[in-house]
Write a protein that binds this DNA or RNA. Structure first.
Lengths: 403, 403
DNA sequence: TTTGGTTTGTTCGAACTCCGAACTTTATTC
DNA sequence: GAATAAAGTTCGGAGTTCGAACAAACCAAA
């Protein structure tokens, strides 16, 4: 039940009806394939004749394909319909501070190529190299057509202009990536925040997609970012910066954050925080006056390895991180009460250790009335890339923007 | 752009088209009235003929009325259309721990009656008395028809069952209010959390309604509750308990809350918190060993009066409250980035003193990228009552639930 | 081999929608 | 009184789904 936005609405015509029903059909096939026209009639409630007409059109437009013939105990055998995954390809791009990953995907988020390159620090150099890689990929993997390029970024994208507002870990801000990459590749480009991309991935191709309309993705790396899907829809706020819960104070006079605030969640629960905890535990070996130079920087990946090897100091640092991660997640569970909260990041590698600590904090610090399932994401890169595919394809599968 | 929910969708028919366009029309009239058919044609982009047909139907259904004839420099004079506010009445009910307020409203949230009664502690007694008052009100204010009863409560309502999950300040939980009141009054009953009601009120009949699709209402009384509208739609989470940011820890080891958590926002920034601050400032008069009995309870209303009279102790207590209020609001601005954040409660009476402190906290502790306007609500009771009217009428004015 | 029953899928006219051009109505201006 | 202009109506056309009837395909039992 949403209000009609009078500054941006679309009146309905006869084609609107067809559009709506076609999309429902497309989603029903996606969900139940292989499926016969007769089953679609039962699922949708439309007339048999209408189902046939719509299916015919979707086949003509190459969205669907007729497949094998089914078997029934009685009566005429049904012709199964299924999605045509090769109708169009999508280029998915996952930009991370160190490396950028590119993938060629079909309509069902199956990757036929996967490669990566170093992320150039200079934006214009980055654009040039990325565009080049994309055109090479397309040449190497020819398809009927490419639908577009989806790019996941560790930053926020402005709602109207689609410009990058800020990306602290990349050192970029106020940047138009869309226009130059579209010009170089000749394909439409969609940009999205990495946490939002993960949320989209889970919504469209996740494990818990049936009936889940409220979903939160928390990406944990050197920063913490949140992507929210509420009522089956990405929440981007007025400008596009919604989801920066990583910069909410958890300890009011905690460590100073570069954002200007103190004790931000991401100062206490990010990978960088664990690295700091580990370093700090070394520098003060029981009352000794440890000099700052003792605080050797051990990368987060090494800490995880140490944890897996049973190192107690690393375990303690991880526990501190997990504790604060749980407190922040409790905030999201209490405030947003989603069906599913997905944690994305390297930290999920040791989820057997982190998960219980998070669960304990959530149990102690959030309403028991919320029934949120807290789950770790399988693979970060895969999550974000699947998100970019969803980003490009969702305009065909989502409800038409009515009124 | 929202995902189609395959467990709850509706296929489109020819009538869907008419439904969509009728609603657009109704909203255009609501927004621009008095307005001619020709203007509606220009606003909507529909054909003149189509506008005439739809307008005719809306007039026949008594949604619209033809009014005065306009004046133009040239050509035939237009017949103005406007909403028929008397098409149907709505009973609005605002339940607060001390008193319950009832109102008779027309379609434009104009109240023709307003009365209140003590809130009975016992739920079944409450239901009996309220139902009785409602039927009396309807008898005293006869209308063509009553569309329904909207009830605002200091608690959360379960999404599917529409039962009251909990209402701590009332001492109620797991309660079905809808069924008995519907039976007694013979009218459909809609229940909603008070903060959600305020958010709805602001969305449908507020000052900043044009183009505002992301809006947060924060109700501050003896507890703190949050209502969220994102993408023009109420966010209720999976069960209906979304918005309990009042129970997010602001100080991890702060005062114990009845919810089980410690240092909850509402323990630090609610009216009750200000009362506690005031009492504590008395009990420890500069190093004296103040006994607990010194902590006389001064109601929040009295503290506000003292503040208005310039009492420094009261002022200090209020400042503490405002400070913590600001920190919590910073959390919402950072995390949700709404266009508007509305504060509702008695505290808005001294907003000239509280506002700047809140603004300062938000400025220091939230991203400058968010452009949220923080505004005080005019009248709490009016806000909630207008919300209940919106609650009942929104099904006629909102976009049809497509797909 | 034939016949009846069952299910899938198609055909076609009816009902409904908006579109768009032509028309009528009502006013002002020269 | 004629020309101009704008508001509002009429009516055939195109597109959609509905719903009943029909054709196709298959099985099983007589």
């Amino acid at each position: 039940m949403h209000k009609i936005n009078l500054s941006k609405f679309q009146v309905a015509t006869n084609e609107t009806v067809r559009d709506i029903n076609s999309r429902i059909m497309l989603n029903l096939v996606r969900r139940h394939q292989p499926v016969s026209r007769a089953d679609l009639m039962r699922f949708s409630g439309l007339q048999r004749s209408t189902v046939s007409v719509i299916a015919g059109r979707l086949i003509a437009d190459r969205w669907l394909r007729e497949g094998a013939v089914g078997n029934l105990p009685r009566g005429r055998k049904p012709t199964f319909l299924h999605l045509n995954p090769e109708r169009c390809g999508v280029i998915g791009v996952d930009v991370q501070p160190a490396r950028t990953t590119l993938a060629v995907s079909n309509m069902e988020s199956q990757f036929s190529a996967l490669e990566s390159m170093p992320t150039a620090r200079d934006p214009s150099e980055f654009v040039a190299r990325l565009s080049h890689r994309i055109t090479d990929l397309i040449r190497a993997h020819p398809k009927k057509s490419y639908e577009g390029v989806g790019i996941s970024l560790p930053g926020r994208i402005e709602v109207g202009s689609e410009r990058l507002i800020f990306a602290p870990t990349l050192g970029w801000s106020e940047l138009d990536l869309k226009t130059p990459i579209e010009r170089e590749t000749g394909l439409p480009v969609k940009l999205e925040n990495a946490a939002n991309a993960c949320a989209l991935a889970e919504l469209w191709s996740g494990q818990h997609i049936d009936g889940v309309n409220n979903l939160v993705a928390v990406t944990v790396s050197d920063d913490i970012s949140v992507g929210m899907i509420m009522n089956g829809q990405l929440v981007r706020g007025s400008t596009g910066v919604a989801g920066e819960f990583g910069h909410v104070s958890q300890v009011l006079d905690g460590p100073k954050c570069r954002c200007g605030n103190s004790g931000c969640w991401e100062m206490l629960a990010s990978n960088a925080a664990a690295v700091r905890y580990y370093a700090e535990s070394a520098s003060v070996p029981k009352g000794a006056i440890g000099s700052k130079s003792d605080m050797a920087i051990v990368p987060f990946g090494d800490i995880l390895r140490l944890v897996e090897q049973g190192d107690p100091r690393a375990g303690k640092a991880l526990n501190q991180m997990a504790h604060h991660l749980g407190i922040g997640i409790a905030m999201l569970v209490t405030g947003l009460a989603p069906d599913v909260l997905m944690v994305v990041g390297e930290v999920t590698r040791v989820w057997d250790k982190v998960g219980p600590i998070v669960a304990e904090a959530v149990k102690r610090r959030s309403f028991t009335h919320a029934v949120t399932r807290i789950v770790p994401a399988g693979s970060e890169v895969q999550s974000r890339l699947r998100g970019t595919v969803a980003l490009v394809l969702q305009k065909h599968f989502s409800a038409p923007s009515i009124a």
